[in-house]
Amino acid sequence: MGGEDKVFTLEQVSDHNNSKDCWLIINGKVYDVTKFLEDHPGGDDVLLSATGKDATDDFEDVGHSSSARAMMDEYYVGEIDTSTFPTKTKYTPPKQPQYNQDKTSDFVIKLLQFLVPLVILGLAVGVRFYTKSA
């Protein structure tokens, strides 16, 4: 790990965003993955699309193996300067009225209590007229 003391800004890392010079930020560390582009199982487009931002979520979502994680050491070039890095904001869902299961269930039960006897009555009348006419 030759670049242990090197600290990069997001702007500096973002400048390395093409197939001849590709750097990624994963878990606050900067990696020069240019030599790995051709060998990456997901293709070089996956890596190139992750430049210029924090690629940690992209990396973790794929579920890389422990051997893939071990390979990262050879591509390490330094750390990201967190003061130049945008902070993540936690998503807060909008306030909405709570869904009340009991009110919905009560409505369905009352509706069925009204409709089921009507259906039975309709069938009884229908059968009676059918048997008289036959």
Rank of each mutant, 00 (worst) to 15 (best):
128 R>F: 15
45 D>P: 02
17 N>D: 15
80 I>A: 03
131 T>S: 10
59 F>C: 03
56 T>G: 00
22 C>P: 05
113 Q>Y: 08
6 K>D: 00
106 D>Y: 00
74 E>M: 13
34 T>D: 12
7 V>K: 08
80 I>D: 01
2 G>F: 02
111 L>H: 06
7 V>N: 02
130 Y>V: 03
10 L>I: 11
92 T>G: 09
43 G>D: 06
95 K>Q: 05
123 L>P: 07
2 G>I: 04
34 T>H: 08
56 T>H: 07
8 F>G: 02
19 S>V: 14
118 L>R: 00
61 D>E: 13
24 L>E: 04
68 A>R: 08
78 G>Y: 00
38 E>C: 05
109 I>A: 10
70 A>S: 15
54 D>N: 02
99 Y>W: 13
121 L>I: 14
55 A>L: 06
28 G>W: 14
81 D>T: 01
108 V>N: 08
69 R>S: 07
84 T>S: 06
134 A>K: 07
118 L>T: 02
60 E>R: 06
134 A>Y: 13
6 K>T: 11
37 L>K: 11
90 K>L: 07
74 E>A: 06
95 K>R: 03
64 H>A: 06
125 V>G: 13
35 K>T: 04
8 F>Y: 07
83 S>M: 05
91 Y>M: 02
71 M>T: 12
36 F>S: 03
88 K>A: 15
103 K>H: 12
2 G>D: 09
88 K>I: 15
121 L>C: 07
130 Y>S: 02
37 L>H: 11
17 N>W: 01
64 H>R: 04
36 F>C: 05
8 F>R: 09
105 S>F: 08
101 Q>T: 12
7 V>L: 09
101 Q>E: 13
94 P>C: 04
87 T>D: 14
134 A>F: 13
49 S>K: 02
56 T>E: 10
42 G>T: 06
17 N>F: 02
47 L>R: 00
96 Q>E: 08
6 K>N: 04
96 Q>A: 12
5 D>Y: 14
114 F>V: 08
20 K>R: 10
43 G>A: 05
14 S>G: 04
115 L>G: 03
36 F>I: 09
109 I>S: 10
15 D>T: 09
3 G>S: 05
82 T>H: 11
42 G>R: 10
86 P>F: 04
49 S>P: 01
18 N>V: 11
38 E>A: 09
99 Y>I: 07
89 T>R: 09
23 W>M: 00
29 K>G: 10
66 S>R: 08
12 Q>D: 14
7 V>G: 00
9 T>K: 07
85 F>I: 15
68 A>W: 04
35 K>Y: 05
102 D>L: 13
16 H>K: 15
16 H>R: 13
73 D>G: 07
1 M>V: 13
101 Q>N: 09
5 D>T: 09
134 A>V: 04
50 A>W: 01
94 P>V: 05
9 T>Y: 08
30 V>Y: 01
36 F>W: 15
80 I>P: 00
88 K>C: 12
74 E>V: 10
49 S>G: 07
17 N>G: 09
40 H>I: 06
125 V>F: 07
39 D>C: 12
69 R>A: 13
91 Y>G: 00
113 Q>S: 07
90 K>C: 04
79 E>P: 00
58 D>R: 12
25 I>Y: 01
